[in-house]
Design a protein around this nucleic acid. Sequence first.
DNA 1: GGGGCAAATCTATGCGCTTTAATCGCCGCG
DNA 2: CGCGGCGATTAAAGCGCATAGATTTGCCCC
Lengths: 358, 358
Amino acid sequence: MAKRPTVYDVAARAGVSIATVSFTFTQPHKVRPSTREAVEEAARALGYLPSASARGLARGKTGAIGLFSFDYYARNSGVTPDADAPFGDEANEDFRMFPLYHDEVQRGVEMECWRRGYVLMVGDTKSTSSEADIAGIAGRVDGLAVFPNTLPDEILLRISKRIPVVELSIPINNNGLHGVSVDNEGGLAALTEHLISVHGLTDIAFVGPLGFPDKEHRFSGYSRAMEAAGLAIRTVDTAPPGQLAAFARDTVAGMLAEGTLPQALACSTDEEALAYMDALAAAGVSVPGQIAVTGFDGLVAGLVNRPALTTVRQPLVELGRTGASILIDQVASPGKEPVKRQLPVKLMIRESCGCRAA
Amino acid sequence: MAKRPTVYDVAARAGVSIATVSFTFTQPHKVRPSTREAVEEAARALGYLPSASARGLARGKTGAIGLFSFDYYARNSGVTPDADAPFGDEANEDFRMFPLYHDEVQRGVEMECWRRGYVLMVGDTKSTSSEADIAGIAGRVDGLAVFPNTLPDEILLRISKRIPVVELSIPINNNGLHGVSVDNEGGLAALTEHLISVHGLTDIAFVGPLGFPDKEHRFSGYSRAMEAAGLAIRTVDTAPPGQLAAFARDTVAGMLAEGTLPQALACSTDEEALAYMDALAAAGVSVPGQIAVTGFDGLVAGLVNRPALTTVRQPLVELGRTGASILIDQVASPGKEPVKRQLPVKLMIRESCGCRAA
DNA sequence: GGGGCAAATCTATGCGCTTTAATCGCCGCG
DNA sequence: CGCGGCGATTAAAGCGCATAGATTTGCCCC
């Protein structure tokens, strides 16, 4: 690589000052057409590429939005994509079978950034992320979007003192950061309501880990609908991390043995719903024949599943877009108050609740 | 946002010079533990975030790799994701049903970047991309990865004079850029060979657009296998852009009418294969009963399809990883010659060729 | 107490660009 | 013929950090 030409080189070649070169690129109308052409010609001849670093330094803005992605696989499946795994490893076969939650959101962020003339920086949060890594990203963007539970709140707070930070999919709270969430409660309430009024079910158990704000809200929705109908709340214990499949099998077996199988399982996530459907199938219980199962998220895996999963679809792309939009707005004109936004969800009535043919 | 504190502020507060502050962050071992702590404490108290712009300027490197993504949907389906489409629009329902080609590749790039301590900048190539947009990305990264046919060669050449540029999935050629490709020819040769020797087929038609280097190579693989077996080459005309489904239907109808249906369709892409399978099904022709159909790419859509599509899987994630790896290597020590690498593909024998039960 | 040496720290400069304030050139007009 | 006024251009001062080279500090030994 030859040394990159700078404004000085272009200026020299065009016989003007560097200021004129700069103006030519940033305020073309302020420079006489003839000199503009001279500058452009010089730039072209030299293969000039303006340095974003220098520009960023001078302007105090980078024109980039950051997104902290995270290793979904490692977190959820206990499987870390092995950097050295040979291609074609069958174990990795369905690794990326479906667009995962954060892929969708990321896509939304990308779309909005592009639309508004920003570029996106994607960083990850590995378990080993040092504060330096984080600063490495935070230092080069004008705004930062993060997934919940990927970064310690304390760090986020500090970063948010300097640049706007938006949390994606975190329920509305008062942590001082911007946030976008979805209507977790309303979604599961609507779903539960559907099971009750359309299918006439009364013994509906909620499946899901509590302790996470979004799951709590889903539970609230479930409870609200049940109570409104005068039905009894019933919950299923939560699987330990990484043990979902086995736990679901055991749980189903237990219920079967005790004859306590509910009429429906309202799961807090599609992932759980799918695991329970597998467990039920393995135990010879028909879904939705003998029991209805519903999820939450709207993963494609649920759509492809047979019976197709009745669930609540989250507007994932929209989530990302909204988050990016908030950031970009804040960059332009920082507001005093954190912006919190909640997006509507959508009931996806498919087969596993008993609607349509299974 | 309060003014961002700088090294000067930190230095002042810690009672040291800015050089020491800088060292504390970049070469911690060169600074005495006691002063290091003082600096860190000051930085923390001030909420200091190093400016990547300034750092990049001073170092002459940005620590970022760029990826020019592109609007796959608009290109392939004629559908532009509408920024203003309301969430829940059914038309968008299966929009993101499966991880698309470039999502996979992008994931690979991300993984390698993270592994090597780089961050990724994602930019897009909209039809409206001006040279300025491109420079906007090229100017802020140390290396650039691009998908084929997204940027004019002339521009790529110019950029590559300053920073390494790698083309993803472009067959080996001599355009002076770095490149990663897959074994298109070997893949389709193996697939064709499978149809010939395992299934004993002799009338196998190649389906696919020529004129694209990768497709040409696939055709070569097909031809090679056919000729080696002493069989006749046969091709099916190519569908005009965006007309795939209709064209496939017409083609199938035509063959049926003329009684010229081959024993197998070796398609150059999964997308074509799926379209032909739909067309065949619509025409009442059984796959693989009456005709075998194969693809190329390894899309998930083919895996979920019934019968599951026999195809050649491209190592998409690996493609991205390799590309990023080349870039990062080149940043570290620029080589004189462009690096070209070809990755192996993998035959995925599933149902549509007649293997296993359909 | 002083000399010598390595480690620690600091001084000073430059990285490439933006931007403000000042200068230049030119025209029309009194 | 000179002056005001205006648009085009430029000089110069940073922006925040890294780093070579200068300087100081700390420490050991005589």
